[in-house]
Amino acid sequence: MNIVVCVKQVPEVTDAELTISSDGSRILADDLEMDINEWDNYAVETAVRLKEAHGGTVTAVTMGDEDSEDVLRQALAMGADEAILIDDEDFEGSDAVGIARGLHAAIKDRPFDLLLAGVQSADNGWGQVGLVLAELLQRPYASLVVDVQVDGDRLTVQRELESNTLERVSLPLPAVLTIQSGANTPRYVSILGIRRVRNIDIEETDADDLGLDEDQIGVKSSSVQELKLSLPAMGEGAEMLTGSVEEICDQTARIIREKGGLQ
């Protein structure tokens, strides 16, 4: 089974102190660590496990600057065979359709049975690229997938719905799936693993090569316009404790005692 998996490099923001540029247009990423989008990591693991069980190849594709090569190397180290980097500033400001058009153009001429993407990206969080890709490819689509079983020329997948409900659906191949986080345990990528794949050629392409112009991608084509980024204002009732660890602990204990948490 030949699989294409879409990946994206995103800043790691869990414990980071975010700063936004003064004009509110972007997050200052200088101090941020970059990593593979969490959902995409599960998608790559799903792809590699399917390859290990059923044979075939895995191709990882990403859109981003040259630093995004890191996530492709990670996918290769996990077991992908090929990688494509779409590197073009013209894609900046694209909406989900613009991004999906780029990815679609890069992979549409490859024969593949399955296309995987993460449910959403940690930075933009639109959750649309996989769906739009399915539409562009005219392929059946399932989202929020946590389990994939191959059944001849069909797939049986589990979708994770709310309240711990699982939905089992069957769809014909070729198909497009978006993979939910927690679908598996993505394998550890060792430095040795990354070094082993450093000589694999990454196919690089851009909007020109892909035959896309600014009517189709970038700010001009985008149906949504980003106005301003801001950090959420501190809500009422929130109190930030400051001081040394001991002082913070003392204050915390005092608050818990005052509010009746400790009798």
Binding site: E12, E33, D35, M78, R187, Y188, S190, L192
Partner: peptide, 27 residues
């Protein structure tokens, strides 16, 4: 086991990633 990657204990994997990213295991 690290080279194969598939049977790594999760907490250790996280700590090793931290060493790579932050140059210390404590993130």
């Amino acid at each position: 086991v690290v080279e194969a990657g598939v049977e790594m204990p999760e907490m250790l994997a996280q700590s090793l990633k931290n060493v790579f990213k932050y140059d210390n295991p404590w993130e």
